[in-house]
């Protein structure tokens, strides 16, 4: 797949945000906040950084793989998968509706191209990504596995089982990312269950750690992923701490937890779309 330029990536981000808003609005449910916050990261991966094949094969040999552990931000993933050619953009209109392949949380059950494992129950994606990375090593496949987790998700114990394992087994073909938007359902992570210093924690667990200070700046997102890639193959897994703003791109949604799992009404949708005028063609 051809790498998009920074200008094209920014245009794609605008379109993906329009998709997210329209998808959750249409069914009056879903998770816009985290989806909007991670848009630059997904667009950078699928349109610039990953070597991937949109002619989907479950085993994904000799291509980069992506696993979404915090499955509730499915709208951004579905949009990016559709926009990069895994399935038709029109199918986004079926999101969360009966008989759809676009389930509330991503699944393999309906054979949606691009999805390799179900997620939604938090804490499981890093383990799966590590397993896939080890399978690549056994297969002599030198491509990379990417995993995205939420920051609240770091409260799940399985994440730390996986973190310990990846360092012990030198899984150095893996780049994990944590979406640090500092919010979770019951409020700020610092109030609900303080994550403290994740850089120090992952370093203490034996990982290389890089940090994306502005995860909503596409140039920075791209350059940090490139830096993370340069650290692969040295006996350590790599962690990218991605600082984002929940709801980024829509002024009344940004920086608040209010839009974690709430959809905009008709008026709010119009307002939001008005702030994201760049379109490559709505479905």
């Amino acid at each position: 797949m051809e790498k998009l330029s920074i200008d094209q990536l920014n245009k794609t981000c605008s379109q993906v945000r329009r998709d997210i808003l329209r998808m959750v609005h249409a069914v009056n449910s879903g998770h816009p906040g985290g989806s909007l916050g991670c848009t630059e990261f997904f667009v950078a991966l699928y349109f610039n950084q990953m070597e991937h094949n949109t002619n989907f094969d479950m085993n994904g040999k000799n291509e980069d793989l992506f696993f979404l552990s915090n499955g509730h931000i499915s709208p951004v993933w579905y949009s990016v998968l559709a926009r990069s050619g895994y399935f038709s953009v029109e199918e986004l209109a079926t999101f969360r509706k009966i008989d759809s392949r676009l389930q509330g949380h991503p699944t393999t059950e309906e054979n949606l191209p691009g999805i390799r494992i179900a997620s939604g129950s938090l804490g499981q994606g890093l383990s799966a990504g590590i397993g896939a990375a080890q399978a690549k090593k056994i297969n002599g496949d030198d491509k990379t596995v990417f995993v995205l987790m939420g920051d609240g998700e770091q409260q799940e114990g399985q994440v730390w089982e996986a973190a310990m394992y990846a360092a012990h087994h030198k899984v150095d073909n893996l780049i994990a990312t944590i979406d640090l938007n500092r919010q979770q359902i019951d409020g700020l992570t610092v109030d609900v269950m303080d994550l403290q210093d994740l850089r120090k924690k992952y370093e203490a667990f034996g990982w290389e750690v890089v940090e994306t200070k502005n995860g909503n700046d596409i140039e920075e997102v791209v350059s940090v992923i490139e830096k993370a890639k340069s650290l692969l193959g040295n006996g350590k897994p790599v962690m990218n701490l991605l600082h984002t703003e929940m709801g980024y791109g829509v002024d009344f949604m940004v920086g608040t937890h209010k839009w974690h799992g709430v959809a905009p009404n008709d008026e709010q949708l119009e307002n939001a779309l008005g702030q994201l005028e760049e379109t490559l063609g709505d479905y």
Partner: peptide, 20 residues
Amino acid sequence: VGIAEANMMGLAAGMTIGGK
């Protein structure tokens, strides 16, 4: 895997991706 059964199940699921 060590004493970490939850991780073991996830690892196993991931290893099937790649044909294991």
